[in-house]
Nucleic acid binder design. Structure first.
Length: 493
RNA sequence: GGCAUUGUGGCCGAGUGGCUAGGCAGAGCUCUGCAAAAGCUUGUACAGCGGUUCGAAUCCGCUCGAUGCCUCCA
């Protein structure tokens, strides 16, 4: 029996604006598509938060026993600077500016993307398709939409006819917009455009002579529009209808709205059952923007080479910090908030490290099963990781009380306690214990053990200058001695 | 200007009609040779103004602020 049969998950569906019981289309299987990055620059911290949120969701679904097919694309073509006639492809622009082949740009930033996500301990998706690898599929979809009459060709480009679509479908239902309002708002702009209406969006763009990224199509040489790739790849790997579509809040409109329109125009029915949107990350209360300098790259955080934070933070601390907020809330990153998380994270890891050594007794003074279910309840409530975290600190308190002899635990409960704690912290939240490798090193622990022994001998002889020297110099090296009831242990800072 | 989200104690951040979220920081105590660590105790917070209600941080309205989208952005 799988966990998902007993743990009832609810998710907040952006499409309906409500928390709904999660029921996959096919029992035991979940198809999830998440919009990946456009690889034209280094991945920034805000991007990482989104992917980390969906990594946590992926991990939890797997933990529940679902067989998950997680598709996250790489946009390596088609993402235009704007939708106007002279709109330039982001990759192509970067390639032109840096005098590189477009695929060199793609390769460079794809590698950067993977390397950063790996540091944050994100699991790789099941499939990571690229837009350029699915040009044929995209062309097929355009043909299909043209046949159905929801698109028109002009000068070698093909545009989606939003007004036509809206006659029989509802354009704007995801973002809560009404087409009439949008038209009313843009009427005065009167763009000089080959599009029939400013709301229309490109399915295929004609490549001008100087354009370096180009593919042949029934409408001449060109390249696909941005929204199309996600429809093509999600349909190919997950089917015409799948369970979860995720992405950043900022993609809700127009990108996801257009995806819905394309898929409905093509297949006549909605593509996605649950739309999940991760919220933005701000920096010192303000939007992250390269233009204002209010921006930080992950590697700059890890190395400490930046003007924003007082010191370096490890990927796991940053991940813990992000997991302390709900994925649908705006999260503000600041030095003060991060260093608070760092201390909390350390406390959590120290407690976990000490669990194996807990002494057991004939009875448990608290209900481990109950505590465990509280953790699941939190996760089942739309992946409420902050509540799960609060519950983890409840465990930390119990662990420390057991160490002090003020609480007791049976051997059986201890095993359950450790297993559950590891499941929540490492499997679901995806945190990594940077101490454990060091702590588990026999050499280090025996060396420190020797020093602890020498210190205790000095203390017994009231030679406090020696004992304090050992303690303080170890502390200076980042090894902290903890005098407890049953002797001295150590932890790493 | 339009649409959406949002405004919680010193900081971060859950909750969402009545019952302590949690972390960090601060104060007191216990333990300790002194510390540290750990434990215990401690915070009368919910932007403002009205309304609904026996009761609202939680629902409704208005005002103010923030964020996202409306051209590209996770």
């Amino acid at each position: 029996m799988s966990l998902y049969q007993t743990q009832k998950l609810k998710v907040y569906n952006s499409l309906t604006g409500e928390k709904e019981v999660f029921e996959p289309l096919s029992e035991g299987h979940v198809g999830m598509y998440v919009c990946g990055p456009t690889v034209y620059s280094n991945v920034h911290l805000g991007n990482c938060r989104t992917f980390m949120s969906f990594d946590m969701i992926f991990r939890y679904l797997k933990h529940l026993g679902y067989k998950v097919r997680y598709v996250r694309n790489i946009t390596d073509a088609g993402h235009l600077e704007n939708d106007a006639e002279d709109g330039e492809d982001k990759i192509a622009k970067k390639a032109r500016l840096e005098q590189l082949e477009p695929m060199e740009v793609v390769q460079q930033y794809t590698l950067d993307f993977h390397s950063i996500l790996q540091k944050f301990n994100l699991l790789p998706p099941s499939i990571e398709p690229t837009a350029t690898g699915h040009i044929i599929e995209q062309i097929e979809i355009i043909k299909n939409i043209l046949e159905k009459g929801f698109a028109y060709e002009i000068n070698g480009s093909v545009y989606f006819d939003v007004e036509k679509f809206n006659e029989t479908h509802e354009y704007g239902k995801l973002s809560g917009r009404k087409l009439e309002d949008m038209i009313a708002n843009t009427r005065e702009l009167a763009a000089q455009d080959e599009k029939k209406s400013p709301q229309d969006f490109a399915l295929w763009k004609k490549a001008e002579a100087q354009h370096i990224m180009r593919w042949p199509s029934p409408w001449g040489d060109g390249f696909p529009g941005w929204h199309l790739e996600c429809t093509a790849m999600s349909t190919k790997y997950l089917g015409e209808t799948f369970d979860i579509h995720g992405g950043g809040m900022d993609l809700k409109f127009p990108h996801h709205e257009c995806e819905i329109a394309q898929a409905e125009a093509c297949n006549g029915h909605a593509p996605v059952k649950y739309w999940l949107h991760a919220n933005m990350l701000t920096l010192n209360g303000k939007k992250m923007a390269k233009s204002t300098g209010n921006n930080i790259l992950p590697n700059e955080m890890f190395s400490g080479e930046n003007n924003i934070l007082s010191k370096p933070y490890t990927p796991s601390v940053v991940r813990f910090f992000m997991m302390q907020a709900h994925y649908t809330s705006i999260l503000d990153l600041s030095d003060e908030a991060l260093s608070a998380s760092e201390k909390g994270f350390q406390k959590l890891m120290d407690a976990i490290d000490s669990m194996e050594k807990l002494t057991t007794g004939p009875s448990s003074s608290f209900n481990v099963e109950e505590w465990k279910q509280k953790g699941y309840d939190a996760m089942n409530d739309d992946f409420n990781t902050p509540m799960l975290t609060a519950n983890l600190f409840e465990a930390v308190k119990r662990i420390n009380l057991i160490k002090e002899g003020k609480e007791t635990i049976t051997q059986k409960d201890k095993e359950l306690f450790i297993e559950t704690m590891h499941g929540f912290v490492f499997d679901i939240l995806g945190l990594e214990n940077q101490n454990s490798a060091m702590l588990n090193s026999d050499k280090l622990s025996s060396v420190v053990g020797l020093l602890i022994q020498l210190r205790n001998e000095a203390r017994a002889n009231k030679d406090f200058s020696t004992s304090d020297k050992i303690r303080d110099q170890l502390a200076a090296m980042g090894i902290q001695l903890n005098d407890g009831k049953d002797g001295t242990t150590f932890s790493l800072n």
